[in-house]
Write a protein that binds this DNA or RNA. Structure first.
Length: 617
DNA sequence: AGCACGCCGACT
DNA sequence: GTCGGCGTGCTC
């Protein structure tokens, strides 16, 4: 008689033992999906172990097998196990978050057609971080490595930040490699299912995709490439809040595959690993340095200037003028903050907010509508203020309008264009371009003069990663610039500016790592956020404060984490649910998670939902 | 997660 | 007396 240990995509760890009916004994193995009775429901579960015996007295039998063959390989099961320990979810939840929607509720059929040769011995897992200065140099190395790995009969996962980048990547790799390549994307369920099955059935050598493609069920994985590894897109915004880079490390270790991280300005996490020689590091310096970087001290310029509240420093204005005279192209980069597109009443000062969430509604130019970014609540833009009935409602972001009108005033004959989408960007359509964050994705285009306006709003945010994010923006602007890069700032001596001016990123990382170390922040420790959610504000608050005091009360020497703060979530309310959160830091995530889970078991939490975000961004 | 069980308040 | 609110605990 055989018993199967089964897990479910529920918040219960399990595993639960079930009797394997005799007629199914040959069809059920580790990694199989089965239908089983669970209380009064029938659930799809994952077999994680087959056993000869069981402790359970009132055992129920497995009802049926879902697929022909095991859905999950041993490696994927091992990965799910690691994943669940790190990201504080059940094994079943870990398994399911690695499966696309198209597979979750359908039968699959495994075939044994093998295009990929089994090759167990060669090469061992190591990690390489490549930093370049032009977004392209690292591509040569990617291709060389892919070629090498393919020649060993192994397969490749190539992760990109977004669909656009992945599409471009697919096109590029199709030109260079003749082997089967699949672009695993959600969207068309049937297509996704077909592609996923191809991968699972050993018919694919290269998988391209965004963060979820890290779970692509490739066999004999030899290489994982993560391009623009510093991107926030690699972090899953829903539970479990995994980071594809972290999962890549786990997976590479299990599969003995190599990882290559590529970036213009790597994350501090990766840079720290390079610094301590835990991973290899390659810096590709450009052959010649032609960009002239100028840091303009706003405070000084303001003192010298006649106009008090100027947007553009005089030297920048003359540089723009000169560039235009030479028929050059100008890019004005304005930090996102100054572009806030909320709606407010100029009469009574009311800012229109979402009724379900504690955030301002964002104005969308195209639809002329106000929308909440958290719950999608949407209303047509009102013509009069709902509070005072005055028709003084303003919609466009203040910064944006000012920049454009000021530019037009200073440069009356110049053609000025705003860039909201980079889809079919055309440099020929204007002389001066004004843009925010979106422009950073642009490739293959150079501007003669690039100017960063109001970049300080990015740097002064209450976020310990503010400097890192600002440096990332500056590195990208450097890349977009053919001749001149002007940066207006009130903090001209900050290392993110001086390092950019000297075109020496090492200066930035050295200083920033020093600061992080002093503060005991990432990458010198890990942060964990425990989020408590409730319909009732008081409930979330009380539970959070109680949990915080319990966590704090534990003996300092024994607890593997340090509680830092308890505070309302940001935002405090989403979809009429109130959030409170506890911030912890720790040295070893798995140990901290284990201890936190123990603590959570002890306390009663009715009407509260608790989620955990490991390594929050 | 979801569902039952059980213990208190309001009501045909 | 019962219907139903929610807090508690269990699921092989």
């Amino acid at each position: 008689v055989l018993f199967a240990k089964v897990v479910f995509a529920l918040a219960v760890e399990g595993p639960f033992d079930y009797l394997v009916p005799e007629d199914l004994e040959k069809k059920i193995e580790k990694g199989s999906r089965v239908l089983v009775p669970f209380q009064q429901r029938k659930l799809i579960g994952y077999v994680v172990e087959i056993s000869q015996k069981t402790q359970i007295k009132k055992i129920k039998p497995i009802l049926s097998v879902i697929d022909e063959g095991p859905l999950l390989s041993k490696n994927m099961l091992d990965l799910s196990r690691e994943f669940s320990k790190y990201y504080a979810c059940s094994l079943g939840q870990a398994i399911e978050s690695g499966l696309p929607e198209s597979i979750r509720d359908t039968r699959i059929k495994l075939t044994v057609r093998r295009l990929i040769k089994e090759n167990k011995n060669s090469s061992c897992g190591d990690i390489l971080l490549i930093q370049d200065r032009d977004k392209f140099s690292r591509w040569q190395i990617y291709k060389k490595e892919i070629n090498h790995v393919l020649s060993q009969g192994k397969s490749v996962i190539f992760l990109n930040t977004d669909l656009e980048a992945a599409k471009a990547c697919l096109e590029d790799l199709r030109k260079s490699f003749a082997c089967p390549i699949v672009f695993l994307q959600r969207g068309n369920l049937r297509q996704n299912r077909e592609d996923w099955l191809k991968v699972r059935n050993h018919q694919v050598n290269i998988v391209i995709g965004v963060r979820s493609a890290i779970f692509a069920p490739l066999h004999n994985l030899g290489l994982i490439i993560i391009d623009e590894e510093e991107s926030e897109n690699y972090k899953n915004d829903q539970t479990p809040h995994y980071h594809a880079r972290q999962v890549a490390f786990m997976r590479a270790k299990i599969e003995k595959a190599k990882v290559i991280l590529g970036s213009l300005s790597p994350s501090l996490e990766s840079m720290r690993l390079a610094q301590t020689k835990k991973i290899d590091y390659l810096f590709l310096q450009q052959a010649k340095q032609t960009v002239n970087v100028q840091i303009l001290d706003i405070r000084r310029e303001r003192r010298l200037s006649k106009t008090r509240n100027f947007i553009f420093c005089e030297s920048l204005v003359s540089a723009i003028q000169q560039t235009l005279n030479e028929k050059g192209k100008v890019l004005i980069f304005a930090s996102r903050r100054g572009f806030a597109t909320f709606a407010y009443c100029r009469n009574c000062g009311l800012i229109l907010q979402c009724p379900r969430c504690s955030v301002n509604l964002a104005y969308h130019f195209k639809e002329k509508a106000l929308r909440c970014r958290y719950c999608n609540y949407s209303i047509a833009s009102p013509a009069v203020c709902p509070q005072c009935n005055a028709s003084y409602i303003r919609y466009t972001g203040i910064g944006e309008e000012k920049i454009e009108s000021e530019l037009q005033r200073l440069m009356p004959v110049a053609k000025i264009n705003r860039i909201d989408k980079i889809g079919n960007f055309d440099v020929a359509c204007a002389d001066i371009f004004v843009s925010t964050q979106t422009i950073l994705k642009l490739k293959n285009v150079k501007f003669d003069l690039v100017a960063a306006i109001g970049i300080d709003t990015a740097l002064e945010r209450v976020d310990f990663r503010a400097a890192e994010k600002t440096f990332f923006i500056l590195s990208n602007l450097f890349c977009l610039s053919a001749k001149n890069l002007f940066i207006q700032t009130a903090l001209p001596t900050h290392h993110c500016f001086t390092a950019t001016a000297k075109n020496d990123p090492r200066l930035f990382y050295e200083k920033e790592l020093f600061i992080r170390k002093q503060a005991g922040f990432v990458p010198f420790s890990h942060f964990i956020i425990i989020k408590l959610r409730s319909r009732k504000e008081e409930k979330a608050k009380d539970a959070a404060k109680e949990l915080f005091s319990i966590l704090t009360a534990a003996e300092k020497e024994k607890r593997p984490f340090k509680p830092l703060s308890v505070s309302p979530g940001q935002p405090a309310k989403i979809r009429d649910n109130f959030y409170w959160q506890i911030l912890l830091k720790c040295r070893f995530v798995e140990k901290a998670i284990l201890s936190i889970k123990e603590t959570l078991k002890e306390i009663k939490h009715s009407g509260i939902i608790i989620t955990i975000d490991v390594d929050p961004l």
